[in-house]
Simulated assay, not measured.
Amino acid sequence: MRQLWDSAAALLIVTGGLLGMIFPLGKIATGAGVSAVVWSFVISFGVGTILILVQIVRRDFPQLDRHKLRYFAIAGAISYAIPNIIVFAAIPHLGAGFTAIMLTLSPVITLTLSLLIGLRRPSPLGIAGIAVGFVGAVIVAATRGELGQPAALGWVALGLLIPVALAIGNIYRTIDWPAHAGPIELAIGSHYAAAVILLLVGLVPAANFDLAPLADLPLAVVAQAASSAGMFVFFFRLQAVGGPVYLSQIGYVAAAVGLVSGTLFLGERYALLTWAGAATVGIGVVMTTKAQSRES
């Protein structure tokens, strides 16, 4: 277990695999009439509650301060509330697998933002990786979702905002990580902050904050809360061990889970061009990863 906790590669696989579960479970939930805001709330409230129970058992009660409260609010909004709403709103239109592919752009966008704000120095390989990833994104976007069911361009554009929000979150959490704060503590605070934000969004009538459909999905609710809680324990540890660019690669692992589960279990079908675009993005991710390792 200690080797897993200290290995960036192992943490990446575990975290990405658990993250990928949100796509098939999200499609099942939205297909049953659960709104994007409600399912996002299920994740954040479920994660916060499960993890705080773990902390109570461990008798670990951290002290709060203004820095942590600010961190919780900002990280909760840009890392969880906003991208999750977009994900679950887009899945019925784009498909679970196609929406998952959007996550693969997170490493490229994270590196781009890191270069722009001076967090990292540009390298030829890193810039080339960004370019290749961008080409892959254009190819994927051009296919517009499932085979024979092209989504409106507006939904494709909305899907492309998912990796942008995640990349901003990756950068923010790195540069504003509170001193002496543990990963579980940060996961609890950020997700409860996201849950509060989602409750406020739910006050808007158009958000359709109806909890009744959840009664028909008890197993999906439990599975989603448990997998997300487990994922975020490893997520924050990976943030500390691997850094923001390496962390952002969980999207590639999650995309693989989303594509495979969508194809095998949810009956989704994608054009060869979609798979080619996803592979091109993957090549860009490998290039940016190699650039990071060389710089390190």
Rank of each mutant, 00 (worst) to 15 (best):
residue 246 Y to C: 08
residue 274 T to E: 02
residue 290 K to S: 02
residue 252 Y to I: 12
residue 243 G to K: 04
residue 220 A to W: 03
residue 237 R to T: 10
residue 258 G to Q: 00
residue 228 S to N: 05
residue 282 G to H: 05
residue 237 R to G: 03
residue 260 V to Y: 04
residue 236 F to M: 05
residue 241 V to N: 06
residue 237 R to P: 01
residue 254 A to S: 06
residue 246 Y to Q: 01
residue 244 P to E: 03
residue 233 V to P: 03
residue 289 T to K: 05
residue 223 A to S: 12
residue 287 M to A: 12
residue 280 T to D: 10
residue 246 Y to L: 14
residue 250 I to K: 03
residue 291 A to I: 06
residue 269 R to G: 14
residue 250 I to A: 04
residue 286 V to L: 12
residue 284 G to H: 10
residue 243 G to S: 09
residue 263 T to L: 09
residue 258 G to E: 01
residue 230 G to M: 15
residue 227 S to N: 06
residue 271 A to P: 13
residue 246 Y to G: 05
residue 242 G to V: 07
residue 257 V to L: 09
residue 220 A to C: 08
residue 263 T to W: 02
residue 250 I to G: 00
residue 230 G to E: 03
residue 268 E to N: 05
residue 277 G to A: 08
residue 222 V to I: 14
residue 239 Q to S: 10
residue 250 I to Y: 03
residue 266 L to H: 01
residue 265 F to Q: 01
residue 259 L to M: 04
residue 287 M to H: 00
residue 230 G to A: 15
residue 275 W to V: 15
residue 223 A to P: 12
residue 258 G to M: 01
residue 245 V to W: 00
residue 223 A to H: 11
residue 259 L to Q: 02
residue 249 Q to W: 02
residue 248 S to D: 05
residue 231 M to N: 08
residue 257 V to H: 02
residue 230 G to H: 05
residue 242 G to P: 02
residue 239 Q to W: 01
residue 240 A to C: 05
residue 230 G to F: 13
residue 256 A to Y: 03
residue 251 G to L: 06
residue 291 A to K: 01
residue 259 L to Y: 01
residue 262 G to L: 08
residue 290 K to R: 10
residue 277 G to M: 12
residue 226 A to L: 15
residue 229 A to M: 15
residue 272 L to E: 15
residue 273 L to V: 15
residue 284 G to W: 10
residue 219 L to G: 10
residue 256 A to R: 02
residue 256 A to D: 00
residue 222 V to L: 13
residue 269 R to F: 09
residue 271 A to N: 14
residue 241 V to S: 09
residue 220 A to T: 15
residue 254 A to V: 14
residue 225 A to N: 10
residue 257 V to N: 02
residue 281 V to E: 09
residue 273 L to K: 12
residue 263 T to G: 00
residue 223 A to Y: 08
residue 237 R to K: 12
residue 264 L to F: 01
residue 245 V to F: 04
residue 232 F to K: 08
residue 220 A to L: 03
residue 287 M to F: 05
residue 234 F to I: 11
residue 217 L to T: 03
residue 258 G to W: 00
residue 288 T to R: 07
residue 258 G to A: 04
residue 224 Q to W: 07
residue 233 V to W: 03
residue 260 V to L: 14
residue 275 W to C: 06
residue 233 V to N: 01
residue 252 Y to C: 11
residue 271 A to Q: 13
residue 219 L to A: 13
residue 274 T to S: 10
residue 272 L to G: 14
residue 228 S to R: 06
